[in-house]
């Protein structure tokens, strides 16, 4: 029997520090795509609240907190990041295991907004993109999910296969912003 070695999506890539900013990997034990069946959105939300403590987020929003978070990922789709798959929802929604398929990173520190301003084509300043807001957009040419998790913190998700490129692009932007301070 082969001895398989589990590697995290950003194994050997993170953490990265530039100036006062850090980019670290977040490792949710389980990432599950929840796509409510037609007309079952409210029932799915109630079941998620019972199971994980947060409701299903609407478009461009995230609910929950560190450790158990639900992030809107597109039309009719939410990702639940937490310790377990919300199996109780299976009668209301299509559940698909996405664990290990995405790299989840946290960009933290003064200047994080400036870093993302170099990479994403949307306004992520605190006046319009507040805590609990999320967006599907691009990180240069990669599709990403970006969620504000704090005053100077963003949680960034890209597909696992983009991890090296995403860390590279974020690192270059972090160093460029740090060099100007």
């Amino acid at each position: 029997m082969a001895e398989l070695i589990a590697k995290t999506p950003a194994e050997g890539l993170l953490p990265v520090t530039a100036g006062t900013m850090t980019l670290t990997e977040i490792l949710p034990a389980c990432v599950t795509s929840v796509a409510p069946f037609k007309g079952q959105e409210k029932a799915a939300s109630a079941a998620l609240k019972a199971a994980c403590g947060m409701t299903m987020p609407g478009p461009n929003r995230a609910t929950g907190k560190d450790g158990a978070r639900a992030v809107w990922m597109g039309q009719g789709q939410v990702f639940v990041l937490g310790p377990d798959a919300p199996a109780d929802l299976s009668q209301y929604a299509a559940l698909t295991d996405q664990s290990d398929g995405w790299v989840v990173m946290r960009l933290h520190g003064t200047g994080a907004e400036d870093v993302l301003a170099r990479l994403a084509p949307i306004d992520l300043r605190a006046t319009v993109f507040k805590r609990g807001h999320t967006a599907r957009t691009t990180l240069l040419h990669m599709m990403m999910s970006v969620t504000r998790s704090g005053a100077n913190s963003f949680d960034i998700m890209v597909m696992r296969s983009f991890a090296v490129t995403a860390v590279h692009d974020l690192t270059i932007a972090m160093k460029s912003v740090a060099a100007r301070e």
Partner: peptide, 11 residues
């Protein structure tokens, strides 16, 4: 209608 105004690159 869901995301708001976005650049053509996203489409």
């Amino acid at each position: 209608p869901l995301c708001g105004e976005r650049d053509r690159r996203e489409f």
